[in-house]
């Protein structure tokens, strides 16, 4: 069997997950203007939400997924209301916000580990069908095809929403200049809160898809956050569309990289790409 089609398939799957996670990260970063390390832990929060509702309490997936997404959004929203908003209100530096978000990451992942133990949990047993599809010589499971579809649809929704709705335009205005947006009457405070809520849902969605595909553990947040942030930076941080390009670029480099090197160097490859971009092209792949 030729390995290249499979590598392409794997890259598309990884790229889709990165796209989803980078979307949420970019939305939060472009409005709140700090590196929110706590964003990653929402993948675990939502993954465990689905795990708890469906495996422990026996609810159907159609019920547990929306509930878990809502929980993840609310966790993100309350982190903003309780922690980031007061800090931003007193003009705290990005460093303070970053360290506070590290605190959020640590706290939530420890709480998850206390409740659910730190063991790795597979969510895939919940899925009833697990058909695989052949695509030009590469194999993808049904779920992975769905993941790719979700990534595309979600990107489109966010795109249309940012361009087309008043709300989206207000978000773009905030990311350009928060002070001016305030002056012209945009309720920046509430809007950023909503962005955190949406970001939480998007991050949680990524977590569910990761969980269904491979599995969840309380410490999954940081590595996934780092990959998502890398994808966003490679594309061009704060730019939602470029994040998609960055996500797929990173996924391809990573998957072809581990083919040439070895699987255990996966994260190293991601970070070398990240460092290369931060050093020579901090503005990302596209000129601005």
């Amino acid at each position: 069997m030729d390995i290249v089609p499979q590598l392409i398939a794997n890259s598309i799957i990884a790229g889709s997950i990165y796209t989803i996670l980078a979307l949420g990260f970019n939305l939060i970063f472009s409005t709140a203007k700090f590196i929110d390390m706590g964003y990653g832990v929402l993948t675990a929060v939502c993954g465990y939400g689905v795990f708890f509702l469906s495996s422990k309490l026996g609810f159907s997936l159609a019920f547990s997924i929306p509930v878990a997404l809502l929980v993840s959004g609310l966790v993100s929203f309350s982190a903003y209301k309780l922690i980031y908003r007061p800090l931003r209100a007193r003009k705290a530096s990005g460093a303070i916000l970053l360290i506070a978000s590290l605190g959020v990451l640590f706290f939530l992942q420890a709480i998850l580990a206390i409740i659910f133990t730190s063991q790795f949990q597979g969510l895939s047993s919940i899925l009833t069908s697990n058909q695989t599809l052949e695509l030009w010589g590469g194999t993808m499971t049904e779920l992975q095809v769905i993941t790719t579809g979700i990534a595309l649809v979600l990107s489109l929704i966010v795109l249309i929403f940012l361009k087309g709705s008043r709300f989206g335009k207000a978000i773009i205005a905030i990311s350009d200049d928060e002070e001016v947006s305030k002056i012209i009457g945009i309720d920046t405070d509430n809007l950023i809160g909503i962005v955190f809520f949406i970001g939480g849902i998007i991050g949680g969605l990524g977590g569910i898809l990761i969980g269904l595909d491979t599995g969840i553990e309380p410490t999954m947040g940081l590595p996934w956050f780092l990959s998502a942030a890398s994808a966003a930076i490679i594309g061009g941080i704060g730019n939602v569309y470029a994040g998609i390009a960055g996500a797929f670029f990173l996924a391809f480099v990573e998957n072809f990289g581990i083919w040439k090197v070895a699987g255990e160097w996966r994260l190293t490859i991601v970070f070398v790409v990240l460092l290369v971009f931060l050093t020579w092209r901090p503005q990302g792949m596209f000129p601005r």
């Binding site: 922690i83 007061p86 800090l87 705290a92 303070i96 916000l97 360290i99 506070a100 590290l102 605190g103 959020v104 990451l105 640590f106 706290f107 939530l108 992942q109 420890a110 709480i111 580990a113 206390i114």
Partner: peptide
């Protein structure tokens, strides 16, 4: 211990 560190970082920053 981890949870306490996390909470501590948040509270200290606040």
């Amino acid at each position: 211990r981890q949870a306490v560190y996390g909470l501590m970082l948040i509270l200290l920053m606040l």
